[in-house]
Design a protein around this nucleic acid. Structure first.
Length: 245
DNA sequence: GTTGAGCGTT
């Protein structure tokens, strides 16, 4: 992985996009301090890459997260910190080799005092059917590639938080369901038993437990008191299991 | 007429 800098490299840009159009995409993650789009000096043809300087590291990090693989025209553009390593090298160097699908463009958090509460509000604006399809997709991913699901949730606790609330709003993970799982006795302090029990649970229950374990302490604090206690118990019981898969 | 990987046109 390249060293974080305020400057990011944008590559694989469509040749037919104007400087203004590329700049507009760059600005969608935050204010742009400096911007350079490169052309061949002799032919005047675009080289298909650009550099964007943001005002701070946070905005640049957001660009790397949100703009890499962003679809512009008919191409998936590349976005990484400025440096010599290729995108492929960065992925290979980042360890486990698990590649995650791109997430949709994030929303601007500048000036937000409570990002967790904002996540909750965004989830609430979704229609019931949309919530169901999001849960269904998460379940499917948990089933076909549990390691990728674990990585996705570890790296994006806001997604775990959103999934827990989606589970609540659609009554797919009611407090009663959580209690039912907790009521199953497990041999005292024996991780193996918890692991076996986890493996025997329905896939959707496993997926929800993974989501719960990915919640940060701050996010748990935001929950309703009733579910908060259950979430804490769930996390205590299963976090070692989930983290050792 | 021509491009698709590119990490800084001085």
């Amino acid at each position: 992985m390249n060293q974080p800098t305020k400057v990011v490299y944008l590559g694989s840009l469509p040749f037919d996009q104007t400087e203004q159009q590329v700049l507009e995409v760059a600005r969608s993650v935050g204010p742009v301090v400096d911007f350079k789009l490169f052309f061949d000096q002799e032919t005047g043809k675009p080289k298909g890459y650009a550099y964007v300087e943001y005002q701070d590291l946070e905005t640049a990090a957001s660009a790397v997260r949100n703009l890499n693989n962003y679809t512009m025209g008919n191409r998936n553009i590349k976005c990484s910190y400025s440096g010599r390593l290729s995108i492929e090298d960065s992925i290979a160097e980042s360890g486990d080799g698990i590649k995650l699908p791109p997430l949709p463009l994030g929303i601007d958090l500048i000036g937000t005092s409570d990002p967790t509460e904002l996540t909750f509000k965004v989830v609430e604006t979704l229609e019931y059917n949309k919530l169901l399809s999001v849960l269904k997709e998460a379940r499917s991913m948990a089933k076909t590639s549990p390691l990728a699901m674990k990585k996705l949730l570890d790296e994006n606790p806001q997604l775990a938080y959103a999934l827990v609330h989606a589970g609540n709003l659609t009554r797919k993970m009611s407090p009663e369901d959580i209690n039912a799982v907790l009521d199953k006795p497990v041999a005292n302090g024996v991780q193996n038993a918890a692991a076996k029990e986890f493996a025997s649970l329905p896939v959707q229950a496993q997926e929800q437990i993974r989501a719960v374990c990915a919640l940060t302490q701050n996010q748990i604090e935001q929950l309703q008191p009733a579910e908060k206690n259950m979430i804490i118990q769930l996390k205590e019981k299963y976090s070692n299991v989930v983290n050792n898969i």
